[in-house]
């Protein structure tokens, strides 16, 4: 189950997309999310789809892997598609069975929305798959830096995020251990009525919280002793490098937006 999920997973590599600066990738994805809404006819949606395939190719992530990993999301997609087909009543009737009618416009809208959905999900997945969480955090920190002027604690937020990411595997291991320990004492999490199962979760959460607080205290001590006193006067070990690839990808995105505006009806 966990192996197949690709949300939040990072696959190391050195493709063109992998080598992009996290800042340009983040800007790219956010701009792309807006640009997608420019498409409104067959050519523009076709263009978006082709462009997305091109990005996936550049990232050297196997399409099969991507589709497989996004299966749960694709179910949602089928659902939206069906809703559009059933509830849109415009254009010619293309299929009729008793009182059940499918209209041409419904099929078209269904396909358009599906493409929009697929394109958004695939492009954001490519971002998270090709960028390590710590790079994403770094990118966000730098991009949000101007907001420090309005007193947004950007550095603290980024540090919180990176520490949270760092401790996810540790706490997962811990949960697993506690679960096994409670199971060894006869608690059963997987069977019985819902009420019993919820009750069985309590002896799991309590030790987990206690240990998380202990960890937080230890970590705070270790950080303070190592000279941490907020973002002021800190230097960064990780240097972000903006190079020609980043400029090119943003130029290409602007070109895509221009083309979409030109071709839309």
């Amino acid at each position: 189950m966990m192996e197949k999920m690709i949300f939040g997973r990072y696959i190391p590599g050195d493709s063109f997309v992998h080598r992009l600066d996290p800042r340009s990738k983040l800007v790219f994805v956010f701009a792309f999310i807006i640009i997608v809404f420019l498409a409104n006819n067959t050519i523009t949606y076709g263009l978006l789809l082709a462009f997305t395939l091109f990005i996936i190719l550049l990232s050297r992530i196997r399409l099969y892997f991507l589709i497989n990993g996004l299966k749960p999301v694709l179910i949602l997609l089928v659902f939206t598609f069906l809703i559009h087909i059933i509830f849109t009543r415009e254009g010619n009737i293309v299929f009729e069975l008793g009182f059940f009618k499918i209209y041409e416009e419904g099929v078209r809208q269904g396909i358009y929305i599906s493409i929009r959905f697929v394109v958004l999900v695939f492009v954001t997945s490519v971002l998270t798959l090709t960028t390590s969480p710590i790079s994403i955090t770094d990118g966000i920190e730098v991009l949000l830096n101007p907001l420090k002027k309005v007193k947004l604690p950007v550095h603290e937020l980024a540090l919180m995020m990176s520490i949270a990411l760092r401790f996810i595997p540790t706490l997962m291991d811990e949960t697993d251990k506690i679960m096994k320990a409670q199971m060894a004492r006869g608690s059963d999490l997987s069977a019985g009525p819902l009420k019993d199962r919820i009750k069985a979760v309590v002896p799991l959460l309590v030790p987990l919280f206690v240990s998380a607080f202990k960890r937080a205290e230890d970590l705070a001590t270790a950080m303070e002793v190592r000279g941490y006193r907020g973002g002021e006067g800190r230097t960064r070990y990780r240097k972000l490098k903006w190079d020609w690839r980043d400029s090119i990808s943003l130029v290409v995105l602007i070109a895509l937006a221009a083309l979409l505006i030109y071709l839309r009806t």
Binding site: S132, P133, I134, S162, I163, L165, R166, T170, K214, R215, D218, L219, A222, M223, R226
Partner: peptide, 9 residues
């Protein structure tokens, strides 16, 4: 505790 003093990613 080796885990509780590892700050970096």
């Amino acid at each position: 505790n080796p885990d509780n003093q590892f700050v970096g990613a």
